[in-house]
Write a protein that binds this DNA or RNA. Sequence first.
RNA 1: GGACAGGUGGCUGAGCGGUUGAAAGCACCGGUCUCGAAAACCGGCAUACCGGCAACGGUAUCGAGAGUUCGAAUCUCUCCCUGUCCGCCA
Length: 425
Amino acid sequence: MHDIRLLRDQMAHLREGMRRRGKLEELTPLLDRAEALEKERRDSIRVAEEAQAERNRISQDVAKRRRAGEDADALMAEGRAIGERIAALETRRQAVESEVSDILLQLPNLTLEEVTEGGEEANRVVRTWGTTREGDVGIAPHWEVGERLGVLDLPRGAKIAGSGFIVYRGGGARLVRALMNFMLDLHVEEHGYEELWVPLLVNRATLTGTGQLPKFEEDMYAVPSDDLFLIPTAEVPVTNLYRDEILEPGDMPRAFVAFSACFRREAGSAGKDTRGLLRVHEFDKVELVRYATPETSRAELELLTSHAETVLQRLELPYRVLQLAAGDTGFSSAMTYDLEVFAPGVGKWLEVSSCSVFTDFQARRANIRYRAATGEKPRFVHTLNGSALAFSRIIAALLEQHQQPDGSVRVPAALQPYLGRDTLR
RNA sequence: GGACAGGUGGCUGAGCGGUUGAAAGCACCGGUCUCGAAAACCGGCAUACCGGCAACGGUAUCGAGAGUUCGAAUCUCUCCCUGUCCGCCA
């Protein structure tokens, strides 16, 4: 969410930001409306507050007369009339304010200067790592090798829950557990993150804080009887950890890592990438979240991304890093790197991580602040997050990239102590 | 799920429906005293928004929301949270 003050004194800047995302034409009516409403909002505040001040004066007079034993009926009648006027003004003011904030919630974040303009086609590969097995013949897609090795049981997953719900078994089940421990240990012990274990069910206030609500309610699994939702990512509970709080000097920066299952209805993507593990309703993920100061957040994006990359390197999976163009950058993000790993069995680059800096866009919405020094005014933190990493696509990539001619799968050295074996066969 | 008891400023804790933004204490900041410190004393000390160059003025906020009233921290209702006891349960 943007600062409402932008509507007052930085309209040109705001319009330019929308243009860079390729959204100016679409959003111009909203921007114009918001600019006018903000003016009306301030006018209506002034008028309503003047009426309230008068009512307060009258009430004081009533009290004074009462104490003096004088008659106050006329004043009370006047107060009643003003009360009605105030109610009307308040109603109007609330309508204006809620329309402004509705619009504000629909405007995407401003991307950083260095983010290139344009849509998906303007995404830039900033670096690659490792050698892909693109073109190697005879590499089976992960669902085939997974079923053959007995590590995946897709039909039974579909039976007990539905398509897009996975049963891992034997070495596959242990692989999930191994990935969890491997990634958490790496980030805690080598990268300095605080480990968290968080609820998978969260309330509306939390989802509103990170922006899933009110706009994306349809994308989530819900428990209506208790008004709770299954989290689509650990970003939601973790970023909200300090919602409505002020961090004191010395509490910054913060770095959190959490494992969680993630639940996505994928309502709009039926029929796309439905085979195997590429797009599922429930998957596991280790998520990194950082609270930074405005001065360091840009540099922390590089740091966070490098932490996610380390996981891929240790798993010996070739990958590339994409810097997303403004038009492809997510709604709340100011700058995003996507990490894509190559899966030779399906012949595709798979997105396994998205590392973003949100500037103060999320923090304003979730009201997460910090004090740089004792006595100073609180400022909004800058939030960052990135997956490190999402399991199901990583498992797909492992089953394909490390597939041997005999159909077995080599386990990368970093994972062997966690998995207790060097080959899945 | 049931029964009680609560939710007031950074903390503790007062608060008859009418100068209560809110007593008092602690903490914190400044000053006096002191070689310095402690103690003592004096003063200051919430946030947000609106208007104003500013001084300052105004409005709102006592868990959240709605209501009663000329006027609500104080009365009514709904919800949320915390504590204790009971029930149920991995």
